[in-house]
Structures are given as structure tokens and as C-alpha cells.
Amino acid sequence: MNELRALVRAFCADTLPMSAVRERLGAGYDPALWRRFAGELGLAGLAVPEEYGGAGQTLAEVGDVQMELGRALAGLPFLSSAVLATYALLGCDDEDARKTWLPRLASGETTGTLVSGDVRVAGGRLSGTAAPVLDGATAGLLLVVAGDGLYVAEDARRIRLESLDATRPLASLTFDGTEARRIGGVPSPVPGLAALAAEMAGGARRAMEMAVEYAKVREQFGRPIGAYQAVKHACAELLVDVEAAASLAAWACAEPGAEAASTAKAYCGDAFVRVATECVQIHGGIGFTWEHDAHLYFKRAHASRVLLGTSEEHYERIG
């Protein structure tokens, strides 16, 4: 594990143990914690170039952070603000927008998100609804994809959505003739897909570890259940899924491109769902209870897999 991952893992262990994750289920992230993540760790601006007040790192480092945040089921707005909004600004045509927003995203003063959905543009005004939007209820900067352009929207009517994965806040945003300024074309999906893949690979690894740890200690018929091949081979298959997901996520983050990003996003999503599902199964009845953490990973897996395009859409793209 490299230093960056160790740093984020330690931060999450300290500030976001499962008890803390549970306390905020459905409530969204703690803004004070995000300011620490931005200020003390300097990670809100990880991918922001130094000239705009960031750390100037690449998607590979973004992937490292995501892997750890996914492992911890952290609800922090890293994917929405530090990846989607940040890379959209970096790729846009508007230097003023970069100068205005990147330093504020990097410092944690505000957060941004990328809004994509059924939104139209006419005469510099946006209309329509986009849902679900990551951290859409709280983001200070709304970057909206409409037609063939990217817009900064004044604001939107925001409704927080009830969501399958209560660790990650989602919202519905409605625009009704909202003023907006065009800052560029439709942003590349690559950074978001690669970062989400890494997050899912990290979550899958933790779910596998939970299953394996339990298989070692839970005894039935006088032996640990992990001594029976039905269970131990299932665990081995989880390891195969987890390492394959890690390989593809690392590839997509190290060599960003459309094929790698779609491949990793689709594969990691499917792998995470398989691993989280088996994690519940290996735990048996206890895995189906609210008090056990297995369901949190199961929900995160299903909810993440359908973000930014389904596996089927991405497999079709690379076919």
C-alpha cells in the first residue's frame, strides 16, 4: 500500500469508523469532516493543478484515494467535487471558470458536482430535471451538461432523494428557465468512470475481507465454515473478483482512455455486486440483519454499479 492510500486509510479509520458511517446514514456527509479532508490532508484539490491551489496529482492518485474511500464507505463528496466537477472544469474552455472555482473546490470552501440528465438549453437558460445527482442537494457549484455544452447554473430546485445506498447522498435537480453560462463542451466521462471503478474495487476488497474473516471464525458441524470447500472456494472466487477489479481499476487510472474506463467501470461494478452478495451469503442470517455491515456494502455495490452508465451500456461501448 503506498503512502497516499495509507494516509487516507488512517484518516478513515480515525474519523469514519463504521459507527460514524452509520450515524450519518441518510443525513449526508459531515461538512466539517470534508473541510478537514481538504485542509489537513489537502485531498479535495488532489487533481487540481498547483496554479489553482491544488496538489497537481494525476488520476492514478485519485484512484488510490477512491479505493480507500470505497473501502470505508465514506460518504465524502470526493467523487462529485474532486473528480467529476474538477475534471469537468479542467477540460472546459473557460479560464475564468477555472480561476473562480478550482481554488474554492481545492480548499474545501465549497463543493461542486456534475449534473447530467434530461436538461435542455435555450437562450442561455436551462430547463428540465436531472436525477440522481451525486451530492446535488449540497453542491455549491452546479456544472450542468445540456445539449452539446457544459454550463454553470445559478441554482436549481433541489430535492434530496431517498436512496438505496444511504451512505451516498443523491438529489433531484430541476431547472426552470434557470440562467446559466456556457463554459465548454460535454466533458469526458473518463475520469469519473475510472475513479468510480477504483472506489468499487476498494469496496469489494473490504467486503471480501469481511466474508473471509467470518469464514475463519464461524463454526458449524464442529469446524470453521471456511474449512468446507463450498465456502472456501467461494472465498477464493471473491479473491479472483477483487484482484481482477483492482487490476482493471489501476489500469483505467494509470492510462486514462475510453476503453479502459468503460472496461473498469463495468467490470468493477459487476465484481463488487458479486462480492457483496456473497459476503451476505457467507455470513448467513447474521449477514441479512441491519446491525451487520454486510448490507451497507451490498447497497453501495448495487447503487454504484448503475451510476455513470450501466455495465451493459459500457460493455456495448467497448464491444
Partner: peptide, 14 residues
């Protein structure tokens, strides 16, 4: 068919 080919590409890359 495209999805099958895509899945296969991903499986081989993995």
C-alpha cells in the same frame, strides 16, 4: 453481441 464481445474484452484484460 456487442455486450458479449465487450464482456469478453474485459475478462481477457482482467
Amino acid at each position: 453481441i456487442l455486450r458479449r464481445l465487450g464482456r469478453l474484452r474485459a475478462a481477457l484484460a482482467a
